[in-house]
């Protein structure tokens, strides 16, 4: 009896994972080529950039914020990386510049929100628009071509059959999970999102914590921009449109509370895989793009609904 109860608790805790597995099984039955190794590799590649963005987003949301600007930041950082990645400099230069550009946007967001007391939605909506403009100005509106073969290999190469992109994502997941779960800083991020006032009277420098979460999101968006350029082999000022929404969706589907203070890293991983698998599965089945949107929307809402119902049963 007790054993069964324990299993029930376990299932309800990890319900979104159960939903994910169910979806994989359904897709495999509908289209067996879904489960082929080459397609699994595809899924890993396709999940990686959104995954990295989702982890940055997770820091912001857990600390009680919200970041609309990451898509634009990816494009801006990607353009800079493409311009510097033509083979004239060692690869570290475009990487560092892209990440610094992302960091700068993130810090600007953080200062606006934590010091200027602007609502995160407004502040990051502003940077979203402005940074997209910056990307267009810097690139002159044209795609930036001519990146070096070495730079292209950053995303295209594999290690033991696993795409490097997936390995970068794995590294980011490990670092972020560690920071959130084990460090004092991580604990304080949760505290800020859980109850900002309480965190402040407990002696936490909430301003710095909130700025830093936006900075992390920006930094990871910069990294994503660098990888994005390598993956698509060009720097595009219009790239990564609405990527912030995919990142937010991955977080929310993965159980990160929009009101802050709640969320587990593995949930974000599952959330991110879930939306990638939906898109990949529908592509494989040849579902028309118009229907894909309807199905994607429905699956996301249903998954979260079932998750909430599954959890409330426990109590």
């Amino acid at each position: 009896m007790k054993e069964r109860k324990r299993i029930n608790t376990l299932i309800s805790e990890y319900f979104i994972f159960v939903i994910f597995i169910a979806l994989v099984i359904v897709l495999t039955c509908l289209k067996p080529s879904f489960i082929t190794p080459s397609n699994l590799v595809n899924i890993l590649k396709q999940a990686s950039i959104n995954g990295i963005l989702a982890f940055g987003m997770m820091f912001v949301i857990v600390a009680g914020g919200f970041d609309m600007s990451v898509g634009s930041t990816v494009a801006f950082a990607g353009i800079l990386a493409a311009m510097l990645g033509q083979g004239n400099y060692p690869l570290i230069v475009p990487l560092v510049v892209a990440m610094l550009a992302g960091l700068a946007v993130g810090i600007a967001n953080g200062i606006g929100v934590a010091v200027g007391n602007l609502p995160p939605f407004i502040m990051t909506l502003g940077t979203m628009t402005a940074v997209r403009g910056l990307a267009l100005v810097v690139s002159g509106g044209k795609p930036v071509i001519g990146i070096s073969a070495q730079y292209k290999a950053v995303a295209a190469s594999t290690f033991c059959g696993i795409p490097m992109l997936a390995i970068y994502l794995a590294v980011i997941i490990v670092i972020c999970s560690f920071v959130l779960a084990k460090t004092v800083y991580g604990r304080r991020v949760y505290a800020c999102g859980g109850n900002l006032l309480a965190a402040r009277v407990s002696g936490i420098n909430t301003t710095m914590i909130r700025i830093s979460t936006f900075a992390i999101a920006g930094l990871l968006a910069g990294l994503s921009g660098f990888l994005m350029t390598s993956r698509v082999t060009i720097g595009q000022p219009t790239a990564a449109e609405s990527y912030e929404m995919d990142a937010i969706t991955a977080c929310v589907v993965g159980g990160v509370s929009m009101s802050g203070g709640v969320g587990k890293p593995w949930g974000v991983v599952v959330g991110c895989l879930l939306i990638t698998v939906i898109a990949n599965g529908l592509d494989i089945m040849g579902v028309s793009s118009h229907w894909q949107r309807i199905v994607k929307g429905a699956i996301i809402v249903l998954a979260v609904l079932i998750d909430i119902k599954g959890k409330s049963k426990k109590n």
Binding site: K31, S33, F34, T36, S38, N39, N42, K45, Q46, R231, V232, A279, N280, D283, I284, G286
Partner: peptide, 10 residues
């Protein structure tokens, strides 16, 4: 790129 990757495996 993502769509074509998926297509090519099916």
């Amino acid at each position: 790129q993502a769509t074509v990757e998926s297509w090519l495996s099916a």
